[in-house]
Design a protein around this nucleic acid. Structure first.
Lengths: 343, 343
DNA sequence: TCTTGACACTCAAGCGCTTTAGCGAGCACC
DNA sequence: GGTGCTCGCTAAAGCGCTTGAGTGTCAAGA
């Protein structure tokens, strides 16, 4: 920068003004400085910038999930790639960290805050009794909660949310229209806010419609638990005629487990996956799934965070309701007692 | 820090010495300073540290892959989580970026370098005629190439490599022992170095054994291409009796495609997936797969980078040869002409 | 002619830390 | 008793940038 100042024949401050688009230099000088800077391939040192109060030009993202459920999910990489896309436009960096659990995640936020490492954070997987909004509010760290319900208690946080309730209602609509009355929802982690929302909505919808045998079972999202729960519920009497899985991995594992028990999909039991991916298109039958655009979700979240960093007030925005892509795994409910069971 | 100095009754420099374990203060003072710092919940500002020449305490990782192949692969999230694990021990941050292509990736390195944003980088997916080692050498940015062959031309870069050649040889061993002589390798992106290594090894092994009909077909790793190629090669006459897929996604898609054509796995055709994951265990039959520990791969790479940052000389380390986990998708080769084809 | 003010720019302080040079005290040694 | 050394510490500069206060110039207005 000193070099630029020297070569352009002005002071360092002038260079700073010129390069940051601030008033205080003539257009001629600005252009000259810009040219010299370009020639020299100059880029501001983020460290120096951060030190003089400009912020770290970095956004943080912590993922707190058990390690074994990490790789399975296609959702997060898509999400991150969407986030990236928006951040890259402004040359903001994404600091990524994997944490053990929420407590660990909070520690990371504290550290980042103390070290002035990030200007804001994206919070994933909001939970029941989540300590994170509280903490971030306290630290004054701008944050966007991804997938959370609008949270009136923490007006400082923005929220980007998918309408799980609406989506669940539409799935139940679809299934009841096909004659299903015994539905089991193989849900995800019980602590997650969206898991609770889905469960609550399912129960409400079932009551509204007078459906008797409808329930949710929580899992850890793994194929193992998905298969185990499937075996368990299909062993009940009478077994459900429709299964809703909270992710694609469990849905696929569930179909395999069902097949092992002699249940045909969709003749004996219909299956819906709450997550669309290549997986759903690779198995036989292809799975009917709720498609959402995870990358777009990430983009929206990142944009909200940028707005927050620009000083805009926090707000809550929704992303489109995921829609059900019907494929071969959903069909009319089997008439009561008509299911085939392997002897 | 000023506060600490005041409360501990020493100068700021003494605090710096004490906290960084440098000589120049008595043990008594050091302990006192440490205590006060802890009390105050002090953490050094990364920005200030970086500015005074300590480095950014951050490692960069760029992923340059077509967006649609991103979410599918379980490999990367596992890898990153392994990397993280090691970096976290030293409180190093991981700056993550998704790039369009290698040129874009190079631009990111240049920017990071100019902005002093990272102390080193991890380079994934080494390619044939890869410009990145050259660039990183030129910039003097410490780097570890993940999955690259040891590169003698760039002695500044460390390399962490998996023995693809050995693994391929063992797979061919296994298949020929089962009587397979017509093998098709559905490979990944043709530019990737490890794709080339696998292809070359397969050819060499085939020649060594006098196997006639052995070839590799490159793809973009997607389920779509995996299925398409499978259909194409199984339509040949005579069709191969064994298929080796370079990732799990294609293998699963391939099995489905084979089933569509009336080929039974493993009676008509054996399938091996070069990537083990929940996916391989979810389909019927369960897929025989090469298992490697991606997280451990990431940990090793991160450790190598740390060593580099500590001033150790660059070196090349191997990770264990992935071993073939036999499951239901491999069996004896069908006798020539004995395959069933749907009429 | 003198004031006023806008404008283009410079000066210098300061962000929070590291680090080199230096200083005084205490000690050993000849 | 002086010299030379080590030890524990302080003072101050500097990393690269931003920024508020200040300076000089020129043109318009009184």
């Amino acid at each position: 920068m000193k070099d630029i100042a020297r070569r352009a024949g002005v002071s360092e401050s002038a260079v700073s003004f010129a390069l940051n688009g601030r008033p205080g230099v003539s257009e001629a000088t600005r252009a000259r400085v810009r040219r010299v800077a370009e020639q020299l391939g100059w880029r501001p040192s983020t460290a120096a910038r951060a030190l003089s109060g400009e912020g770290a030009a970095t956004v943080g993202f912590v993922l707190a999930r058990p390690a074994h459920t990490l790789g399975v999910d296609s959702f997060f990489l898509q999400l991150v790639s969407g986030i990236q896309e928006v951040l890259a436009e402004r040359h903001l960096g994404l600091l990524f960290q994997v944490a053990e659990d929420v407590a660990d995640e909070c520690a990371v936020y504290r550290r980042w805050w103390a070290e002035h490492r990030v200007d804001g954070v994206l919070v994933a997987d909001p939970r029941a009794a989540d300590p994170r909004p509280e903490l971030l509010d306290e630290l004054g760290l701008p944050a966007v909660v991804i997938g959370g319900a609008p949270d009136v208690r923490h007006p400082g946080l923005s929220t980007v949310w998918a309408d799980d309730a609406g989506a669940m209602a539409s799935v139940v609509d679809e299934l009841t229209a096909l004659g299903h009355r015994r539905i089991v929802h193989i849900a995800g982690l019980p602590d997650l806010a969206h898991t609770r929302r889905r469960i609550a909505t399912l129960r409400a919808e079932a009551e509204r419609r007078g459906l008797g045998e409808v329930r949710s079972v929580t899992t850890d999202y793994s194929d193992t638990e998905g298969a185990a729960v499937t075996r368990r519920v299909l062993g009940g009497s009478p077994p459900p005629t429709a299964l809703i899985y909270d992710n694609d991995v469990m849905a696929v594992a569930g179909v395999a487990a069902a097949a092992d028990l002699g249940f045909c999909v969709p003749q004996d039991v219909s299956v819906v996956s709450w997550e669309d991916s290549a997986l759903c298109r690779m198995v036989t039958p292809r799975l009917s799934a709720l498609s959402r655009d995870s990358a777009a979700f990430g983009r929206t979240a990142a944009r909200e965070l940028l707005a927050l960093l620009d000083g805009a007030p926090a707000r809550s925005v929704g992303v489109p309701v995921p829609r059900l892509t019907g494929r071969g795994s959903t069909g009319r409910a089997a008439p009561a007692g008509g299911r085939r069971v392997r002897e």
